[in-house]
Simulated scan of single mutants.
Amino acid sequence: MPKWEDYKSEAKARGALAMELFVVRTRPTGDMGLVKATLPDHLAYQKEMEAAGALVMAGPVSDVTGDMMEAEGMIIYRATNLEAARALANGDPMHKVGARSYDIRKWLVNEGSLSFTVALSSQSVTVN
């Protein structure tokens, strides 16, 4: 198995983007009342991280069938390293109070595309 930095260097040498992001998979620890009570603070924190440029994307994920919501979520952070990303995750009120636990991984983004539409008159943005 190649070391992470070696793989990242090889990806860059191939012309891939090789943008390092951090993926947080978060799940309830059992007390859904605590999750619901902490939700406003969690959402405010997410908005703060977005404004600071640290939050790339976040939201809930379904179960493996795609039919049920199990209260799991995914957060993608932009950070200088794993320790900085872990500090962002630890700062989330859900994790601070123990309402949710998480694991975190580096993600090397190599391929893909994003497109969006900006409608000036309605002041809206649509991501496609």
Results as ranks from 00 to 15, higher is better:
residue 96 K to F: 03
residue 36 K to W: 06
residue 46 Q to E: 07
residue 23 V to C: 01
residue 43 L to G: 04
residue 93 P to N: 02
residue 117 T to K: 15
residue 21 L to K: 14
residue 24 V to I: 14
residue 125 V to N: 01
residue 50 E to H: 07
residue 17 L to C: 03
residue 50 E to C: 00
residue 83 E to I: 03
residue 5 E to M: 02
residue 39 L to S: 08
residue 52 A to T: 04
residue 121 S to T: 15
residue 87 A to N: 07
residue 51 A to I: 06
residue 62 S to M: 09
residue 88 L to G: 00
residue 18 A to V: 04
residue 98 G to T: 10
residue 4 W to T: 02
residue 86 R to I: 03
residue 33 G to L: 11
residue 97 V to Y: 00
residue 68 M to L: 13
residue 55 L to Y: 03
residue 52 A to W: 02
residue 46 Q to H: 10
residue 74 M to C: 12
residue 111 E to R: 15
residue 19 M to Q: 09
residue 109 V to T: 13
residue 26 T to E: 13
residue 12 K to D: 13
residue 119 A to F: 15
residue 104 I to W: 01
residue 69 M to T: 05
residue 69 M to P: 02
residue 97 V to S: 02
residue 4 W to L: 04
residue 73 G to D: 00
residue 124 S to H: 06
residue 51 A to C: 10
residue 79 A to M: 06
residue 90 N to Y: 04
residue 71 A to M: 09
residue 116 F to R: 06
residue 9 S to A: 15
residue 4 W to D: 08
residue 31 D to F: 02
residue 110 N to H: 11
residue 74 M to V: 14
residue 58 A to Q: 09
residue 29 T to K: 11
residue 123 Q to L: 10
residue 85 A to R: 06
residue 88 L to C: 06
residue 13 A to D: 13
residue 26 T to F: 02
residue 12 K to L: 14
residue 5 E to W: 01
residue 83 E to H: 11
residue 24 V to T: 12
residue 29 T to R: 08
residue 79 A to D: 07
residue 36 K to N: 04
residue 15 G to C: 05
residue 5 E to H: 00
residue 99 A to E: 12
residue 17 L to M: 08
residue 53 G to M: 05
residue 23 V to D: 01
residue 99 A to L: 08
residue 110 N to G: 09
residue 65 T to I: 03
residue 42 H to C: 01
residue 76 I to L: 03
residue 70 E to S: 10
residue 99 A to N: 11
residue 84 A to Q: 07
residue 44 A to N: 11
residue 84 A to R: 08
residue 24 V to K: 04
residue 46 Q to D: 07
residue 36 K to T: 05
residue 6 D to H: 11
residue 69 M to Q: 13
residue 87 A to V: 01
residue 41 D to L: 04
residue 56 V to M: 04
residue 46 Q to A: 14
residue 60 P to D: 10
residue 59 G to M: 06
residue 9 S to N: 14
residue 31 D to T: 07
residue 31 D to Y: 06
residue 113 S to E: 15
residue 41 D to S: 08
residue 4 W to N: 03
residue 59 G to F: 07
residue 30 G to C: 10
residue 66 G to W: 07
residue 25 R to T: 06
residue 81 N to T: 00
residue 8 K to I: 10
residue 85 A to K: 03
residue 7 Y to M: 14
residue 20 E to N: 09
residue 10 E to A: 12
residue 44 A to H: 13
residue 28 P to S: 15
residue 37 A to Q: 04
residue 6 D to Q: 14
residue 91 G to Y: 05
residue 38 T to P: 00
residue 116 F to K: 06
residue 32 M to V: 08
residue 73 G to C: 03
residue 107 W to S: 11
residue 70 E to I: 14
residue 61 V to Y: 04
residue 83 E to L: 07
residue 99 A to Y: 02
residue 90 N to F: 01
residue 21 L to T: 12
residue 16 A to D: 15
residue 32 M to I: 08
residue 31 D to K: 12
residue 116 F to D: 07
residue 124 S to Y: 05
residue 97 V to G: 04
residue 101 S to G: 08
residue 104 I to V: 11
residue 102 Y to H: 10
residue 3 K to V: 10
residue 48 E to C: 02
residue 116 F to Y: 15
residue 99 A to G: 11
residue 113 S to H: 15
residue 37 A to L: 10
residue 120 L to G: 14
residue 85 A to Q: 03
residue 22 F to H: 05
residue 49 M to E: 02
residue 26 T to G: 05
residue 88 L to N: 09
residue 20 E to T: 15
residue 123 Q to K: 15
residue 27 R to M: 04
residue 39 L to N: 03
residue 92 D to W: 00
residue 33 G to D: 13
residue 46 Q to N: 13
residue 14 R to C: 02
residue 43 L to E: 01
